[in-house]
Design a protein around this nucleic acid. Structure first.
Length: 149
DNA sequence: GCCAACGTTGGC
DNA sequence: GCCAACGTTGGC
């Protein structure tokens, strides 16, 4: 067995990423199977992208329109330089692949009403576009979305 | 190194 | 479409 194909030694980390559905909706990712997560221009979000490992799980949030967690994706390729960035700037991308849509979208309104999600970055750091979520938060969101992995 | 101005995000 | 919040930039 090769290093690359073997299961990761540690459990996958969990993240939440935002996208405006009018720009790139979860349905577009399902259609494309995989996409490059480019255009991040915020240092903290970039650093989070760089901390992602292949196989990490991503919750997909629709901002502005919909305002709900709508699906699950996974990290298909770890961070590499963002081809859409100016050559003299230091930005990164990862490739993400669709896993499955939530049975039920979990709206921001629901999230705000759920005590277990009071510390979710989506609520406490409303402008951050790539953030870590805890396993407990991840599980709570899947449960609200009537979805299992 | 501070902080005012600016630009962008994203909820409403 | 507005505007509050806030991350980033740039003048000093």
């Amino acid at each position: 067995m090769t290093r690359k194909k073997s299961a990761p030694a540690t459990a996958p980390q969990r993240w939440l990423v935002k996208s405006e559905p009018s720009v790139y909706a979860f349905a577009a990712l399902v259609r494309d199977k995989k996409t490059r997560w480019d255009g991040v221009r915020n240092f903290e979000a970039r650093n989070n992208l760089r901390a992602m490992k292949q196989g990490d799980l991503l919750l997909y949030y629709h901002s502005n329109e919909g305002k709900a967690v709508v699906g699950i994706a996974t990290v298909a390729r770890e961070a590499y330089p963002d081809p859409s960035a100016p050559a003299d700037e230091d930005w990164s991308v990862v490739d993400v692949a669709a896993v499955k849509a939530f049975t039920l979208p979990v709206t921001l309104e629901t999230i705000k009403k759920t005590p277990a999600l009071a510390k979710l970055g989506l609520v406490t750091r409303p402008r951050l576009s790539v953030m870590k979520v805890t396993p407990a938060e991840f599980d709570a969101l899947l449960a609200l979305g009537k979805t299992t992995l």
